[in-house]
Every structure is written in structure tokens, then in C-alpha cells.
């Protein structure tokens, strides 16, 4: 087994294990700490897939910002009225286990074994127009060109709409969370 395969199996095992810890631990602060491990290992998966920019963004936004938000929300709320543990299951947890197992089995069947699975396709038919711009080989430079460039093939309009979504979300969070 080559180095990439070995790294993939190590990262995948830590990833699934920390996900199980997030849903399984009794103390919710420990769950939030396991969430940090999960986000960092997902960044490792992105590095294996040659997506350096997304790996760095994952570390910055998920392991940095989102986890800090979750920890702040945990500190601002008290969970003593939830019973013994601060991260309890509800009464229908067995139903949730059955449903999630069925959904996971269906996704795995559809992705790998089914005759319509995308993994067995990939005919590689070329269509569409090619851009006149030169394509950068650096991943970060290329994604920058794909997001911002006004002349080449790029995703400028979705990018601007995403900034609008962020603005609305920030204003909405302030309005909802305001103390009045």
C-alpha cells in the first residue's frame, strides 16, 4: 500500500471515530472538542485530494470560527435541566439509529454497487467551450481566478450572492440574538 492510501485509512478511521465520539459522548463540551478533531481530519482529506485552498478554509472557518461559536453557545446556556448528562438522547433514539442506518446503507448502495452509480461512469466526453484564459497550475491561484475573474470563466455572480447571504445572516443573527 502506498503512502497516500495509508494516510487515507489513518485519516478516515480518526474521522469516523471522532464523529462517533461527537454523537456518543455524555458531556457536550467533550463532544465539541471531538468536533475540532473531526474538522481537522476533514482538512487532511481535502489535502489528499489536492484541494489545498479548501483545506485551509476548513481549518480557518470550521475548526476556528464555528467551533468557537459552538463553545460560546455552550457557555451561555445551562444544561443542568436535561438530566444526568449534558448531551442526552431522546426517547426515539433507536428509531433515529434505524433511519440513519437505512439512509447510510442506501447511499452506499447507490454510490458503489448500483448499476446507475456515478463511480463506474466517467466516460470523459468533452463538450462546452473552453476558456481563452490560461489556467494557473496553483490551486489557490486557480480558485481565485474562478471566483473573481470578470473576463475568464468564473463564478462571480454566485460569489456576490454568497456575500449577500452572509450579510443577511449577520444582520439576522444580531436581530434575533439582541437583548431587548
Amino acid at each position: 500500500m502506498d503512502l497516500t492510501g495509508l494516510l487515507f485509512w489513518i485519516i478516515a478511521i480518526i474521522l469516523v471515530g471522532s464523529a462517533l465520539l461527537v454523537v456518543g459522548l455524555r458531556n457536550i463540551v467533550h463532544s465539541a472538542l471531538a468536533l475540532i478533531v473531526l474538522f481537522a481530519m476533514a482538512a487532511g482529506i481535502y489535502l489528499l485530494l489536492n484541494a489545498e485552498f479548501i483545506a485551509i478554509v476548513q481549518i480557518l472557518i470550521y475548526a476556528g470560527a464555528v467551533t468557537i461559536l459552538v463553545l460560546f453557545a455552550l457557555m451561555l446556556t445551562r444544561t443542568s435541566n436535561l438530566g444526568g448528562s449534558s448531551n442526552p438522547n431522546n426517547k426515539q433514539w433507536w428509531l433515529a439509529a434505524i433511519i440513519s442506518t437505512l439512509v447510510g446503507a442506501a447511499i452506499i448502495f447507490a454510490a458503489t454497487l448500483s448499476q446507475y452509480s456515478t463511480a463506474q461512469g466517467g466516460s470523459g466526453t468533452a463538450y462546452g467551450t473552453t476558456s481563452a484564459c490560461t489556467l494557473p497550475t496553483n490551486n489557490v491561484t486557480y480558485i481565485g481566478q474562478l471566483l473573481y475573474s470578470p473576463t475568464c470563466y468564473s463564478y462571480v455572480l454566485p460569489f456576490e450572492i454568497a456575500s449577500l447571504v452572509l450579510l443577511v445572516a449577520i444582520v439576522g443573527a444580531i436581530v434575533v440574538g439582541r437583548e431587548d
Partner: peptide, 20 residues
């Protein structure tokens, strides 16, 4: 794909079964 499916169903269990 299988890794993503495993993570998805673990997250689905967490979203459905938790009280907090």
C-alpha cells in the same frame, strides 16, 4: 463516497436523536 456516506449517517443520527 463511502467515507462521506458514513459521516452523513452518523451526523443524521446526531441530528435526530439528541435532546440538546
Amino acid at each position: 463516497l463511502v467515507l462521506g456516506a458514513l459521516l452523513f449517517c452518523i451526523g443524521l443520527y446526531g441530528a435526530l436523536a439528541k435532546r440538546n
